[in-house]
Design a protein around this nucleic acid. Structure first.
Length: 194
DNA sequence: GTTTCGATAGTCT
DNA sequence: GACTATCGAAACA
């Protein structure tokens, strides 16, 4: 990859526990073609928690289907699904091949290709609203179900390493928009320290 | 400013 | 046949 966005994260980055991958994806740069954004919010969707309880909020809890199969496959691939019949959402598969686990990318700070993002997101009132939600960021970045299963360690859609955040801290909260396992603290966000 | 609600189609039961 | 890992417009305060 010979562009200005920095080194692509290797497969090994993703072949770790989902919670670790979710936390460490914060601050990294998601690149799709000429557009890029800094990841500032993620959620982990697990197989089981530390006490062995099944994560019933995870799509993989339904088992291997045509939709969920990529979640059980090798790490570092994109799981894109349609939410509420309208919005496409991007996840990145974690854990070793054969084990389910993925990280929902919930929000980005636009970094490059702002003009294109604005054109794709006409309802955004300012640049902060271009990608501040899982359905919004896929729209802004041009990510669709065509990217289902895409390898994010090479090609058009990649995640790049970035300098560690200095003035921000990681906040852990409950996940959004689910009805099962609502108290699990698996949402990670970057917050400015004041 | 906050709350409510409809849109809309793929997936699973 | 029911449900959904969301969004944005409209209604209200």
């Amino acid at each position: 990859m010979t562009d200005s966005f920095g080194p692509v994260l290797p497969r090994g980055f993703y072949a770790r526990p989902t919670t670790v991958v979710a936390r460490e994806l914060l601050g990294k740069i998601l690149v799709h073609g000429a557009v890029a954004g800094r990841i500032v919010e993620t959620e982990a969707y697990l197989d089981r928690d530390e006490q062995g309880r099944i994560d019933l909020a995870a799509h993989s809890a339904a088992g291997i289907t045509s939709r969920t199969r990529v979640i059980f496959g090798p790490p570092g691939h994109a799981y894109v699904y349609l939410a509420y019949g309208i919005h496409e959402c991007l996840n990145i598969v974690a854990e070793q091949d054969g084990l389910p686990g993925c990280v929902l990318i919930r929000a980005l700070e636009p970094v490059a290709g702002l003009e294109l993002m604005r054109a794709r997101r006409p309802s955004a009132k300012n640049d902060g609203e271009l990608a501040n939600g899982p359905g919004k960021l896929t729209r802004a970045m041009g990510i669709t179900r065509r990217d289902y299963g895409a390898d994010v360690t090479s090609g058009e859609l990649t995640v790049r390493d970035a300098a560690a955040f200095a003035s921000e801290m990681v906040l852990e909260t409950a996940r959004i928009g689910i009805t099962k396992c609502v108290d699990w603290q698996l949402r990670y966000l970057l917050q400015e320290t004041l």
